[in-house]
Amino acid sequence: MMSEQFRSGTDFQVPNERPCAKNNYCIPPQYNENRIVLMVKDPWTLYSYWEVKKEVEDRVRDDMRQKGQTASKSILRVFDVTDDTRGGKNGTVLDFELRNWANSWYVHTGSPGRTWLAEIGIVSASGDFFMLSRSNKVAAPSYGMSPERDKEWDCPEEMYYKMFAIAGGYGGGLSSYEMRDILDKHLKAWLSSGGITSDIFGSTGLFLGRR
């Protein structure tokens, strides 16, 4: 569910003449609202986009001034909230300084299997963070074999890699240690070769991507 920060009015400018040009509808660059959204790109990477309402920024800057602080820089702050605490047990908080009116960012967390939350804000000269907007939470997937085992359907590691080997086209005959090593590499190669879309036959790409 989206957090309250996502609720918005409808006071953006909608192009009321349509279309701007043949087959070229105008869409507003922004929606005059205060929001930041977090999406998962892959286990190691998030994507965030945002928009800050001028009134909110003015209010936050006033607040800073009243507290005797001066704005230093705009920050995208990303928290590991896996354990329901800001920064998580391992205390991960990632800060990214925003310049040139950036309104989106790819965040390389490098940590699969964690849950994340982002805030956009201003850091004062003394290092205090003043939030402008807070995002939704997202869970990045884990990467690799799950440590969790089901009692009824138990799958020891050796069995997992033997099965994995067959799935990867390696057949049997290797030790589980050798298989694990080979298959980790195999899977990475398979995924990064695109399996599909970078190769000739892409899904939908049959018509759309290879002309």
Binding site: Y143, G144, E148, R149, W153, C155, F164, A167
Partner: peptide, 15 residues
């Protein structure tokens, strides 16, 4: 990998 990285560990891989 939607199955292979699933949890609990998949006993039969993708089969």
């Amino acid at each position: 990998h939607g199955v292979l990285f699933g949890s609990p560990r998949p006993k039969y891989a993708v089969y």
